[in-house]
Design a binder for these strands. Structure first.
Lengths: 232, 232
DNA sequence: CGTCTCATTGACACCCTTCAAACGAAGTGG
DNA sequence: CCACTTCGTTTGAAGGGTGTCAATGAGACG
């Protein structure tokens, strides 16, 4: 668990070093952009920077423009569960309470549009279409998290990884080749495994001819059907 | 896995035997009731009866009046993950596209109010308050499922069980005594464990003096703090 | 008192984790 | 351009927590 503890330490450093600064640059670079029919502020975050933390007041809802974001929960001893990765076009920060129940960080350098929750709910109150859209986004997330639960509760390491690869392949439209934006540690924390198991399972899938790993961040899907069967 | 397979078999039998019948009685006993500001139909279901199945058209949103409901997903080989238990007052059936993505069954004999999705979304379109309520319910579910993910991905058997017991204790208001409405198999499938591990862990907690098990369905919380610490 | 279902307990196996070391790619400074 | 460092990843060996298989036990019901 010391790996994750050091990760947490890194995070704290990053927060202290850069957060204030980017908060400024964010404001500076903040050209207005449309998001759910509400004017939003464009913001940029660096790799591993914290976007919001558990317990902070939830002021905004975000949409990813470029890059990838992770949301997660963490235990006192460093055990981390990544709830979701958000790719360009996807919306995160939808939370029930006034206070964030999870943390969000930039997996890669990224650019997002932020919309004030107040403005959004105000608009939703009067505009049925916006309310509907908001509900649809939330339901989509709920749907995904229920599938995620099945993965975490009932699937083996290779099944989890196969599901993950197929899911990424669907979400990043690219024929039989997936560029993974996140580290092995992120994948492990997303799938409820250790980094070693992720690595070993990757190698195993490669040895079986199911996938190919030209570089550490690239995966070639050799036998889609095998992956589909595993992921099912 | 044969235990779960036989469970599946039992379910099929129950579906074939009773579903048609209760569908009739449901209509018969259907007195109108209020739910989310929309008139609903009161329905009753027997223990282990299927309320809706994965893949069926999603016609209704439900609210529990009496009894307990479980929603779950199941794999081809019988592995089952229970997403949530719904207690009196709680709402289920939200998570849906046109077709249900999970199944729902009665854990105990139960009584629910069903509201047509069509009517509900129609009302939500024009009434901001209803839309807001609907969104809040969905966000609450999402919040719970994210915590559930943390449990499934990162916690040990005793931590899972402690969390489960504390959660049930909060939801069923009763001082230091929890009446479990569901079987060990249900608990196992909710927590991503086997029935044997649930049983062993229960016994262990009892041996440690943390809980007491007067009957199989009753749990006395002896050391709430210990449970809280484990569950955290 | 039998039967059925569900729960508990035991013995053993195994998948995944833990601990540890080696490896490799990327960046830095000489 | 090459050592050197650093961080992330891979690989190995060993151990443990949970699963599997099997038998026993305990309520519920007729």
């Amino acid at each position: 668990m010391h790996l994750q503890s050091s990760l947490a330490a890194t995070r704290t450093i990053l927060r202290d070093d850069f957060k204030g600064r980017s908060a400024l640059t964010d404001q500076a670079s903040g050209s207005s952009a449309d998001h759910l029919g509400v004017a939003g502020v464009r913001m940029t975050w660096r790799r591993n920077e914290e976007i919001f933390g558990e317990g902070e007041p939830a002021t905004c809802v975000y949409r990813v423009l470029k890059g990838v974001v992770r949301t997660y929960r963490i235990l006192a001893d460093g055990r981390r569960q990544i709830a979701e990765f958000f790719l360009p076009g996807e919306v995160f920060g939808l939370h029930a309470r006034a206070v964030h129940q999870a943390s969000a960080e930039a997996v890669t350098d990224c650019e997002v549009v932020a919309v004030r929750r107040g403005q959004l709910s105000e608009r939703a109150m009067t505009d049925g279409a916006t309310a509907h859209k908001l509900l649809a986004l939330t339901l989509h997330q709920l749907l995904r998290s229920e599938e995620h639960m099945l993965i975490l509760g009932r699937k083996t390491a290779s099944e989890r990884l196969a599901w993950f690869l197929m899911d990424m392949a669907e979400r990043i439209p690219a024929p039989n080749r997936v560029e993974l934006p996140m580290s092995r540690q992120d994948i492990a924390d997303y799938l409820g495994l250790t980094i070693e198991t992720v690595s070993r399972t990757m190698t195993q899938l490669q040895d079986d001819g199911v996938i190919e790993l030209p570089t550490r961040r690239q995966v070639v899907l050799r036998e889609r059907q095998t992956l589909m069967d595993l992921a099912a």
